[in-house]
Amino acid sequence: MDTFFEQFPIVFQALNVGFLQTLKLFAVTLLGALPLGLIISFGSMSKFKPLSAVVRVFVWIIRGTPLMLQLLIIYFFPGLVFNNPIWGGGEDGRFIASAVAFILNYACYFSEIYRGGIQGVPIGQQEAGQVLGLSKSQIFFKITLLQMIKRIVPPMSNEIITLVKDTSLARIIALQEVIWAGQAFMKGSQGISGAIWPLFFTGVYYLIFSGILSLLFSYVEKKLSYFKA
């Protein structure tokens, strides 16, 4: 068996490749789920009752079942039931299926956060703008938006840091993210087998990344702490 110092460069290289996939899934999920969540939140607040009912049931189902189950269903369902594996095989197909599952799941969580932020701004703020003669868009952009953001940032930062760790769930459909890459050295890969330390070492990637995000969010929260809303 090689020494740790001989193994390290090989493992480090492999974990970096895996972590890149983790990061990609993280970024694509945010890019899709942040705007989709806003649309879903508007749907759930719609005055058109059938729409808001359907949206709320959808959100309830997605939030009430495990993301891992959703991943499996989204990945395997089209192929097994319709005999139409729309995602295609290989790593690209697994990535697309993972991204779809993550975006849907996180959009539902985000929608509830947006809804809380939007409904949390007292109606008196809007009315104060109205009686001063401001237009709807002036009221939204100049008065309510920042108050919503202030309300949204703390729960959003929790959710986003959870997302960092949740990306590892894509391992269940064999997406080659960082834990998959670490685990490979237990079974045997690139001449290294039975090594447990690479798996432990994947934790370092998560710690550093979630640590950076925590710092970023606490900076934003601090920036917004000059007022109470």
Partner: peptide
């Protein structure tokens, strides 16, 4: 509507100042 509102001002019981 906005023109109509400008004839009047309203001071609310709960102030409704813009906190930010």
């Amino acid at each position: 509507l906005r023109n109509n509102r400008l004839h009047f001002g309203l001071v609310f019981q709960s102030f409704n100042l813009f906190p930010q």
